[in-house]
Amino acid sequence: MHLLHRKACDMSVRTAPPLALPARTAHRRVTAAGADVFYRESLPDAEDAPTLLLLHGFPSGSHQFRRLIDALGRRYRLIAPDYPGFGRTREPEGFAHTFDRLADVVDAFTDALALERYALYMFDFGAPVGFRHALRHPERITGLVVQNGNAYEEGLSEGARDFVALTPDAPGAREAVLGLLTPQGIRGQYETGAAAPELIDPDGPLLDAAFFDRPGRERAQLALAFDYKNNVAAYPAWQAWLRGHRPPTLITWGALDPFFPEPGARAYLRDVPDAELHLFDTGHFALEDHLGAIAPLVADFLDRLPR
């Protein structure tokens, strides 16, 4: 009986599907535009694997892409930096936290890594950073993956418009911004609109909150909040770039996003009619609870891009 049982087990092992092993991920630092930039980089199986630069959003950091890197990093080179004011990146004293400066750091970061051709994954703050980068280096961009990264007026909810209108001297402005950085405020941004919040890892919001407790982070986030209106002013330039370059574009969007609602996703089709659009029944952090649907879309998209 023991021998028969062992043979049965051996047969089941031979016929079971192979395990989908996660990618190996390196955690590194590089100096870029005076900042000590922390980044995550997958180590793909092939040396010539296509590259995807992952640009994170607010209130998160490169850690938000950990599961996507695990899922796709053996097949593609995925690189996710932390911006100054986020995660583990350290910036020099007196660093001006504006979206222009964040893009300067990303420009210098890609130069430091000698990246020549890559697609951009733009989520939330990743859109204003990524579009600035794309306008400066259009020859490098093979395609865009846009996940709840807004570039259109109709993609701003009423709450987002109120946020954009904040000025440093307005009563209650500072409190409104800092309220988004409390553990409760961060958790709400992850869960609002999600049909199954139990699928969202609660450690993500806690990690974000811990990073925002670091010295200088409050000043950085206030500065970026009050600078956000310059992103809205730049929307026409970004739209013109999309019309002029027509980059291959994949849009994956949480349709119940309280900040950037569904019309912002559909608006991209005006300027990039051939864009591929997928809407999901969730909120702002669509990747948190829809990784299983989004990752295959990203893989298929990357496989179709020119090298």
Score class of each variant (00 low, 15 high):
248 P>D: 13
17 P>E: 09
130 G>E: 12
226 F>G: 14
148 N>P: 00
184 Q>Y: 03
294 I>L: 13
150 N>A: 08
84 P>G: 10
219 R>I: 03
11 M>T: 05
305 L>N: 12
40 R>V: 01
254 G>E: 02
264 G>M: 11
182 T>N: 06
268 Y>S: 03
302 L>Q: 10
91 E>C: 08
209 A>T: 05
34 G>L: 08
199 L>T: 04
192 T>V: 13
13 V>E: 13
91 E>N: 05
118 Y>D: 09
154 E>L: 06
38 F>T: 01
285 F>K: 08
30 V>F: 01
209 A>R: 01
237 A>Q: 15
3 L>I: 13
145 V>D: 04
170 A>N: 08
30 V>C: 13
152 Y>L: 11
121 Y>E: 03
278 H>V: 06
175 E>I: 03
11 M>E: 10
48 D>S: 13
61 G>C: 14
286 A>I: 01
94 G>S: 11
156 L>H: 13
185 G>I: 07
241 W>Q: 09
181 L>Y: 08
196 A>V: 12
121 Y>S: 05
264 G>Y: 12
197 P>S: 07
151 A>R: 11
114 A>W: 03
225 A>D: 04
293 A>S: 14
151 A>N: 12
208 D>A: 15
130 G>Q: 12
134 A>K: 12
182 T>L: 06
280 F>E: 04
32 A>V: 10
84 P>H: 06
236 P>N: 08
302 L>F: 09
120 L>H: 07
289 D>H: 09
1 M>N: 09
58 F>G: 01
92 P>Q: 05
5 H>Q: 11
239 Q>R: 15
229 K>M: 03
194 A>C: 10
75 R>H: 14
104 D>I: 02
144 L>Q: 09
267 A>P: 02
232 V>F: 03
123 F>M: 13
149 G>C: 09
170 A>Q: 15
141 I>P: 10
108 A>Q: 02
16 A>I: 03
140 R>D: 04
172 G>V: 11
156 L>M: 15
302 L>Y: 10
140 R>P: 00
221 Q>V: 02
238 W>M: 13
54 L>D: 07
42 S>F: 06
271 D>A: 11
